[in-house]
Design a protein around this nucleic acid. Structure first.
Length: 561
RNA sequence: GCGCCCAUAGCUCAACCGGAUAGAGCAACGGCCUUCUAAGCCGUGGGUUGCAGGUUCGAGUCCUGCUGGGCGCGCCA
């Protein structure tokens, strides 16, 4: 419909140019938007306002000229000029209703496109270190990151989901020491407990499992415990595998799976860290000072230079980060999106600067970042403090168990990434209508319920009869619902382009509202076969779009509540 | 002090490359179940879009400066 109007306006422009009303060199991007107020028709364009200045005419006069030049079309029943010079289009009932046929024909594919042309995109997200269970912040990253991947796939990209973690640094040593202390029967209050050791109960679980000689399988590794309290290397290896398995299980329960697990240690093993250092030195952007090797990142927009190699000879995390991203580039990802917590935003400039210093042909501003702000968790109105090192924090698993997977994913993905999020456990737990995910799911379940009713009455949906009678969907509420359905592909495209899965959630709430309104106003199970089937078709189309949209969020579409 | 992000109804949040009278949900108030699931619908009240300027036909949206909040500013990750 929208495309039809744009095409009509395009023809009108050509005509006006031929008539000399418009300069021949004007080629504006024609913007047609759905209206907010149905008194303004179904679609509106601000074209006359945009062109008023170059044409040297009053907007309303130009609008009249444009309308006069519009070709006839069966899709448009009426046009109006309104306000300062908007042109409003009233779609014909037939044209609006065609979306129902389109949705039913496309099914799961409705809203999807091939616009991405199979371009490879890598999305790195979660990337938690294996030092403990995933917390709510990781959950937000998982929900946003995975939805983003689903969106990118929906618009035709070849997406790789990647999880990067440090399996060898100081934090991991601390983990190993903590587990070893538990293995030896020590607690955080005892003398000999490692300084800054991980105090959480899960450390005891790891220790017990280690002592029992258990075998753990994570997606990317497979380790049997030695059970020897003195073998720190064995403890470390086991603890990492144990916690990776834990995280994998949490993510699986959350509906998130990765294609690639990338180990920081592999960068060292493969000589990629060393090669990166050498390359940076060769490019002349480094210097030594106070026994450390620095990279002059200030040449590339950073506010201070960064240490790459410490005076003790070890590398800072910065260097493997650069080596890792060089590796991504070399793997052929012209587009990479890193989803991470905003508390790490300082790495953005730094990593990009490091990549520029390599002079490897990597574009400035590569890779992209989506940063999510902190998640505050409250229980009984009191903030639950997130502290990984202290070991007391709300885990993702807690939320999935208490709140349910669907509501948790919806809550965490339904808000803009760059606004802070308060996750009220009590509110999210309550199975009340406070929870928007139920509102959307209920709309889906209601359609299913009508179908059950249909069957109970010994009737069935007649597809051909329905499509032949779509023109009988003339109620205002039906028209509003159909207009909403028609917008879905655009919503998907826009959400993917702006990397904001939250737009899909917003759309679904609007769609569900339109449906509920329609449901209350218009009875589906009427005597008239033609009308009943047409309305059933509208319900089925709505159900399809809700299902498609929820799938982009990784949320299920139940058939009954 | 410097950098990044945010500020919209009492609360939680929307607002599609700047568009018409800023929208939903919750909370408040009033209606709607002998009729497809009332986890729903309809209606009422509720706003100087933090403040002050600027850009233009038009600003919640863009620019500048403030105020308030979050995060970051390690030879930690």
């Amino acid at each position: 419909m929208k495309e039809t109007i744009i095409a009509l306006l395009d023809e009108a422009l050509v005509t006006l140019k031929q008539q000399g009303v418009l300069p021949a060199d004007t080629s504006p991007t024609i913007k047609v938007d759905p209206t907010k107020d149905k008194a303004h028709g179904d679609y509106a364009t601000n074209l006359a306002l945009m062109l008023a200045k170059p044409a040297g005419k009053k907007p309303r006069d130009l609008a009249e000229a444009l309308v006069a030049a519009l070709p006839e079309s069966a899709a448009v029943s009426k046009t109006e000029i309104a306000g300062p010079g908007f042109i409003n289009f009233f779609a014909s009932t037939d044209a609006v209703a065609q979306v129902v046929a389109q949705v039913l024909e496309s099914g799961d594919a409705y809203g999807r496109s091939l616009a991405g042309q199979g371009q490879k995109v890598q999305v790195e997200f979660v990337s938690a270190n294996p030092t403990g269970p995933l917390h709510v912040g990781h959950g937000r990253g998982a929900a946003i990151g995975d939805s983003l991947c689903r969106l990118l796939e929906a618009v035709g990209h070849d997406v790789t989901r990647e999880f990067y973690y440090n399996d060898a640094g100081a934090q991991i040593s601390n983990l190993a020491l903590s587990v070893q202390a538990r293995v030896k029967g020590l607690g955080p209050e005892d003398a000999g407990w490692p300084e800054d050791g991980y105090r959480g109960d899960y450390i005891q679980d790891v220790a017990n499992s280690y002592l029992a000689g258990e075998t753990v399988h994570a997606d990317d590794r497979h380790v049997t415990a030695k059970g020897d309290p003195e073998d720190l290397d064995a403890i470390r290896e086991f603890a990492v595998a144990y916690l990776r398995r834990e995280q994998d299980l949490d993510l699986k329960a959350f509906g998130v799976e990765f294609d690639v697990y990338f180990l920081e240690s592999s960068l060292y093993e493969d000589g990629k860290v060393e090669a990166t250092v050498e390359r940076l030195i060769d490019q002349g952007h480094t210097y030594e000072e106070e026994g450390a090797l620095w990279l002059r990142t200030t040449d590339f927009g950073d506010d201070k230079d960064r240490v790459m190699r410490k005076k003790d000879g070890g590398y800072t995390y910065f260097l493997p980060d650069v080596a890792y991203h060089l590796d991504k580039w070399q793997r052929g990802f012209a587009r990479v999106i890193n989803e991470q917590g905003a508390d790490h935003h300082s790495t953005v400039t730094r990593v990009r600067a490091g990549l520029q210093a390599l002079d490897a042909g990597i574009p400035q501003g590569w890779p992209d970042y989506v940063l999510h702000q902190m998640v505050l968790v409250t229980r009984s109105g009191v903030e639950v403090k997130l502290s990984k090192r202290a070991g007391s924090y709300v885990t993702l698993r807690d939320l999935i168990d208490e709140v349910g997977r669907d509501a948790t994913r919806y809550f965490l993905a339904a808000r803009r990434a760059d606004s802070q999020l308060t996750f009220d456990i009590d509110l999210a737990r309550s199975q009340s209508n406070d929870n928007p995910v139920y509102y959307v799911q209920y709309a889906h379940a209601r359609v299913c319920s009508v179908l059950r009713r249909l069957e109970a009455e010994g009737l069935s949906f007649d597809h051909d009869l329905a499509l032949a009678n779509l023109a009988s969907l003339t109620e205002d509420q039906e028209k509003a619902l159909m207009n909403r359905l028609a917008r879905y592909p655009e919503v998907v495209a826009h959400a993917a382009a702006s990397r904001e899965p939250q737009q899909v959630a917003q759309y679904l709430q609007d769609l569900a509202a339109d449906f509920h309104t329609c449901y209350n106003a218009v009875k589906v199970m009427v005597e008239d076969d033609a009308l009943r089937n047409a309305r059933l078709a509208l319900g089925l189309a709505t159900r399809q779009v809700i299902r498609n949209g929820l799938d982009l969020l990784g949320v299920g579409a139940p058939e009954e509540m």
